[in-house]
Structures are given as structure tokens and as C-alpha cells.
Amino acid sequence: MNREELMDLFSEKIRELLARLPVYYEEVQEIRLRAEKPLLIRYGTREYFVTEDGKLSEEESEGFLVDKKELMETMEYIANYSMYAYEEELKQGYLTVRGGHRIGVAGKIIMDGNRISSVRYISFVNVRLSHERKGCADQIMPYVFENGELCHCMIISPPGCGKTTLLRDLIRQVSNGSAWCEGQTVGVVDERSEIGGSYLGVPQNDLGIRTDVLDCCPKAAGMMMLIRSMSPRVIAVDEIGDYEDIRAIEAVLNCGCRILATVHGNSIEDIEKKPLLKRFLTEKIFQRYVLLGNRDAVGSLKGIFDERGTRLC
């Protein structure tokens, strides 16, 4: 992570406070700014207030209050003084900046009929830091291959427990090739710009030498576009869940592609309770389920299971 590049996103005052913090930025998950509220940082698995003298505190009263001026100055830095240039992205509630960091925003929504026209009076900003952890998929690689073939794999975890980070490294290793497989062409549908963290169309995260990325594209439409245009052997998507996603995954399977996907959940039982996803379990479509948690640390591996529910690890 380029620490200086990250600091340049914030107003001068907030930048000064963050620069003093006694933290390892590879463990920082989020930095939250809310108008007239204390500056918050999620570090590891815990949340802290940032104090006036650049320290961490669990006491709300000690937190530095972010005023509207600091917020607006931060948004100007984020958008390179051209909010208009990012207007289309902001309609989605976020934008992606150099380094792959994702900036979530909230404020007054301006509607045009049933469509969001723009976001005005931005008063809430969430900077989600992009983390590359090359090698974090090493622990699962022996289990997601069978007879030399990549298995259809679903990564399950609660929010903020590293499923996208794990998926990213799995994509990289499959794309580049490893002790477990030769390099394969991978197509990534990156609907929220979180996997590749693309900036001006170029992924800021390393997804491997044989990977093609559709950035800011709806998952269902993107999977079909990749099949028609890029001839992938593997397709990867993040956070599946709606009916269109399920139909597209079925089409991917019928085309002979391997699928790597993530979904929110605390357990396989959680997936069974979701009608759209339960079918994957009953029909044994996914061959591997990788379960993550945060009991010991963010991204802790809780277990790997096969299509029958047998624990492999």
C-alpha cells in the first residue's frame, strides 16, 4: 500500500492526525468521516476514535469532530477538484481512486423519476482501504483443486472478514499459474470495483497476467459478456445473491467455465436459509465452500467443505 497516496485523499488537518497514528496501515480496514461526528477508524477487528493529538481512543468524547469544511476539502482531494468528472460513479454511492481504495459516500439523493440523478451535500464518507495480501490463498490452494482441475468454489464470510482479499489472491494464482495448476484465462466481473480496484480502467491490484476485468459492470450481464467476448476458462465474481446472478452462474456452468464466487454468511447453514442460494447446495453445484471468520484475526479460515458438506480442512 502506498501510504502517502492514501494520505493525499484527506484534508490537511485529517491528514495530519492520521499521519501521527501508531498503526500499521496494512491492518486498517476503514476510515469514516461524518459531518459533526468523531473521526473513526476500523483497525484490525476493532473500531477506534481518532483524537485531536493523533492517537486511538475508545472514548467518543475524545474523538476529533469532523466539520463540514474538512469533509468538503477531503472530497475535493478525492475527486481531484472535479466532482463533475465523477458524477456518474457517485450515482452508485461510491468511487474508486488510485491504489484501488473505494470511497463510499452518502448525503442528499437527487432523483430523476425512478433513477438517481446525483448525490448532493455529501456529509458521510467511508474510505475502504484496498489490501493486497499476496499468498493469502496458499492455505486453500491444495483443497480447491481436484485431479488437477480447479473446483467451482464459493467463499463464505461475514462482511469485513477478507473474502474479497482471498478471492483476489486466488484469481492471481490461477491466472499466473502455480504448483497446483498451469496459468488459466480468468474473467472478472468487478461490479463494485473492489476486486481489481480499477482506476481509469486499469486494475490497481494484481489479478495476474491472464486476467480480463469488466469494471463497474452488473454481475449477471458481465458474466455473459465475458463468455461471448473473452473466452475465459474461469469466471470470478464477488457477493452473489439475486436471481439474475444465479441464472448467469448457471449459464457459466453450462459453458464449461469454472466459477469462483463469494457470498455473505456466517456458515453453510446461512446459505441454506437463502432460497436462491439453497439450490446450489441441494444440487451440489459448488464443489468447495471456503468459510472465513474473524475470531482469531480478520480472514481466519474456519473450514473448507466439499459439495457433500464433508469437512476437508
Rank of each mutant, 00 (worst) to 15 (best):
E4L: 14
E5R: 13
I14K: 08
L18C: 03
P22N: 14
P38I: 12
I41C: 08
Y48K: 09
Y48H: 06
F49G: 01
T51H: 05
T51R: 12
D53S: 12
D53V: 10
K55F: 02
K55P: 00
E70R: 08
M72S: 04
E73H: 04
E73R: 10
T74W: 05
M75H: 01
E76P: 01
E87A: 14
E88H: 05
L95R: 03
T96W: 04
G99E: 10
H101T: 09
I103T: 06
G107F: 00
K108V: 09
I109D: 04
Y121G: 01
S123P: 02
H131A: 04
R133P: 00
A137V: 08
D138C: 00
I140K: 04
Y143D: 02
N147E: 13
M154N: 02
S157E: 06
G160K: 07
G160F: 01
G162V: 08
L166R: 06
L170K: 02
V174H: 00
N176K: 13
S178L: 07
W180D: 03
D190S: 12
I195Y: 04
S198Q: 02
Y199W: 15
L200E: 13
L200P: 04
L200C: 10
L200F: 09
G201Q: 02
G208V: 05
C216Y: 10
C216N: 15
I227M: 15
P232G: 06
R233G: 14
V234W: 05
I235H: 03
A236L: 06
D238M: 09
E239P: 07
E244I: 03
I249H: 05
C257V: 11
G265C: 06
L276D: 02
T282C: 00
T282Q: 08
F286N: 00
Q287I: 00
N294Q: 13
R295N: 05
V298S: 04
G303Q: 10
F305G: 05
E307V: 09
T310V: 14
T310A: 11
